[in-house]
Design a protein around this nucleic acid. Structure first.
Lengths: 216, 216
DNA sequence: CTCCACATGTTGTCACTGTCAACATTAAGA
DNA sequence: TCTTAATGTTGACAGTGACAACATGTGGAG
């Protein structure tokens, strides 16, 4: 594994192209962002980087692998956004709401990227362990925050994993609705986001006797 | 528009191929179901129907149009499932839960089809009015049921549209999680479904003072 | 019944794509 | 220095979606 120039000892190109893998990922993401996934072509990525069409195959097994890597990066930055919202918000109930808002905001601001992230299966047996691990990492940020709120007695002490999945499903669903253009205008998106976090927290917080069974 | 043989007056082929459009749709859906969207090829659809590769273009503008038609049919049958669950369940709170279960069940049982339905934009300006209309129809089934529950005093009298969007987002999110393989086994799918409908209804039903603002 | 216009299906062809095999070049270590 | 593996290039190929030109059967006008 040849490493990057890093320290800047030699400012000229450290290799044939510098580090190409990084460039391929960036360029792929830029194209996806600008024109959508299905307009992404390996040849144009290479051309745009001043490199030939098949250079890519030294860094990714095939197109799916490239897309998986793009998706992996998406989950990584998503997790960063979530953790930032949680920490900067003060790790309380409001911070949890901020996490939800951050999630939806990320999905809307990077809709094409987001679609790649959830376009195919995330089963590790299908997509490879890296993507699955990074997706699990992003989910873990939610689990941790939720667990913290449970310990503080702010959220019902149901099975943490199930509750987290529920919350994840809600924000993911809202994001999808927004991305797919089923919410007419930004106002309705904002309204739904607000309503969602309100109703969601009313559903999972403490302070009310439960009629049904918790079900782990 | 040459109509189908229908009454069976003349059992021999009424036209070049009978009605091809129907066959194309069925075959496309079958392929999608069996091998996934990206393995769908126009040529093979034609071949499999004993028809040549470009016959399709007399019935659909291009591949995207075919996929849009497939998605349109998906929303139609989804609506049928939802309405059946609502009516047969007795149009009460339990029937509403049954709608949610039916939705998730449909998504899981027809995961590839479901992915096509939500793969691209549903904005009528992008995908054409038919798909948008059918998607809106499926959503309307949910709105109607919810409105009925609101009139019966079972669900909070918040803005119906916003509440419906919220519910839609939740079931859609759960479906996506299940489809993407993020729920390890059927047990956890069932558990999340149950937990979801329980927490969801706790969040939107009446009988609790609201802290925040309703926000229409 | 005849005949023509039109809907429907076919053949030929094209640009483009992902992918592989064979070859060229450069960095890095012995 | 010289080898070796990593990295990038060229040529090629089978498939794909799509279009234009052509063929064929249907149904209605006369």
């Amino acid at each position: 594994m040849a490493k990057i120039a890093g320290k800047g000892r030699k400012p000229r190109r450290p290799y044939h192209h510098g580090n190409l893998r990084r460039g391929l990922l960036d360029e792929a993401l830029a194209t996806i962002r600008a024109e959508g996934v299905d307009r992404l072509t390996l040849r144009e990525i290479g051309t745009r980087l001043g490199v030939s069409r098949t250079a890519l195959y030294r860094h990714f097994a095939d197109k799916r692998a490239l897309l998986a890597a793009v998706a992996t990066e998406g989950f990584r930055t998503l997790r960063q956004h979530l953790e930032a919202a949680w920490v900067e918000g003060g790790r309380n109930r409001e911070a949890f709401e901020a996490m939800g808002t951050a999630y939806i905001r990320f999905a809307i601001a990077n809709s094409s990227h987001y679609r790649v992230m959830f376009g195919g299966s995330i089963d590790p047996k299908v997509c490879g362990p890296e993507l699955a691990a990074e997706a699990a990492g992003a989910f873990q940020a939610l689990v941790d925050a939720l667990s913290s709120l449970q310990r503080a007695g702010i959220v019902r002490a149901d099975d943490t994993l199930t509750t987290a999945r529920y919350v994840w499903a809600v924000v993911h669903g809202v994001s999808m609705l927004a991305i797919n253009g089923q919410l007419p205008d930004p106002v309705s998106i904002d309204g739904l986001t607000r309503y969602t976090s309100d109703r969601l927290l009313t559903g999972i917080d403490v302070g009310r006797a439960l009629s049904g069974a918790p079900r782990g």
